[in-house]
Design a protein around this nucleic acid. Sequence first.
DNA 1: CGTTAGTTTGATGGTCCTCAAGCACTGTGG
DNA 2: CCACAGTGCTTGAGGACCATCAAACTAACG
Lengths: 244, 244
Amino acid sequence: MRSAEHSRLTRKLSAFVALSGAELAVLEQLHQRRRTFAAGRDMVHQGQSDQAAYILSSGWVCSYKIQPDGTRQIIDFQVPGDFLGLRSVLLRTSDHSFEPIVPIEAAEVLKSDLLAAFAQTPRLATAILWAASRDEAMVVEHLVGVGRRDADARMAHFLLELGSRLALVGIGSKEGYDCPLTQYHLADALGLSAIHVNRVLRQLRESGMLTFREGHVTFHNYDQLLELAEFDPAYLDQSGPLLK
Amino acid sequence: MRSAEHSRLTRKLSAFVALSGAELAVLEQLHQRRRTFAAGRDMVHQGQSDQAAYILSSGWVCSYKIQPDGTRQIIDFQVPGDFLGLRSVLLRTSDHSFEPIVPIEAAEVLKSDLLAAFAQTPRLATAILWAASRDEAMVVEHLVGVGRRDADARMAHFLLELGSRLALVGIGSKEGYDCPLTQYHLADALGLSAIHVNRVLRQLRESGMLTFREGHVTFHNYDQLLELAEFDPAYLDQSGPLLK
DNA sequence: CGTTAGTTTGATGGTCCTCAAGCACTGTGG
DNA sequence: CCACAGTGCTTGAGGACCATCAAACTAACG
């Protein structure tokens, strides 16, 4: 259903800015150019410029950098309702790649369309810049995790953050959520080996905190996880609308 | 000397955009509110909003996040010619702190002044957004380093990046540069213990690649360092002016 | 001249990586 | 229908890298 898919981004932005009918209409306009991409094949390669942005309707994407020695670091995941490549439109080509993790649907947003929408509705611009700012805060928090948390806390923090993000767009809760990531994805995101990811997940499962199995994350003891991860969701800035 | 200090940012932006006399004048205007800060005491605390930005004239600053358990992760360092808190003006309050590492001089830039300057000179706006984009690319590269490089390569990469940044503003070269960081700063930035930082530095020194002593970094074998760190400066985007 | 900040070195041990191998499941082609 | 390959998950053994604990040394500073 189109409206249900579009509502992911709307829902997310509405948590920050109460949007008017006119603003919602402009937002709707941005969803016109609908496209699909297959899993596993890069949508955007490092170094491409003049790239469009995308609003992800369904499916998951990751952004990553490959090193000369073949190891890869995943920078961030994009989930439904997220912008993808917003920075390369607003600022400049960022030099990392985007890969769909599952087949995805996304709306292509041209630079000109985005700037026109910004000119028309400054409040919408504020909301979208808030989303960009939040993405950046997540990268910073990711850096903190990889630099200063041990594997257990890192994993717990990561899965809690994902849950929080998904809850904001209505596809996750404190009970858990569907998650198409493999243990290899987790390893490349968290700076661990896939083997150690497996052991960490086992430990979390055996200690009764969470289960990650068959594409589903289940939180068994949310409070204990919060404590283990020292998860403070302030950086996600989801406390409620700032503009009325 | 005022003009010499101001020229740091000018010099950096000129590597990207050839600025006209009028644009240089507007840039000069932004340097009016000159302030100083003592070392070791936060200029900006996590969570403060409506914060001004600063253009760093002299001295070094670091931005960091403290965790509940007391460990800290340094996100980035700012050196002369860098903006500080640009994102919190353009986007929204970022939730980390800024601490001067040595006594610093900086020009305060109010949000209103910055937006006025942008409206007057779009090319200057482009240049400053380029700087913001570059800062962000550095955070991403930092994440890659902490996630996927061992301690030696991480250190080498970090010191090479700093050298590259300093060279752009005329206070560093392939020979080396002055660097006021302690081994504790390096540890908090690289996600290592201070003790291990010391051993890594010793190893780099004994293998004849670089010396870091008494506030000065000296490169003895630049090419070997490039190879060890797999340092590809593409993300620093210093290839030359893009706008003429 | 004691204190503090920063650096240096040694010893020990834990976290996490690497190598190796087996299992379950899926899809493909003979 | 079954062999086979491919992908992803799981477990074990051994070892590297880096953290932690402990302590000495230097330089700066009141």
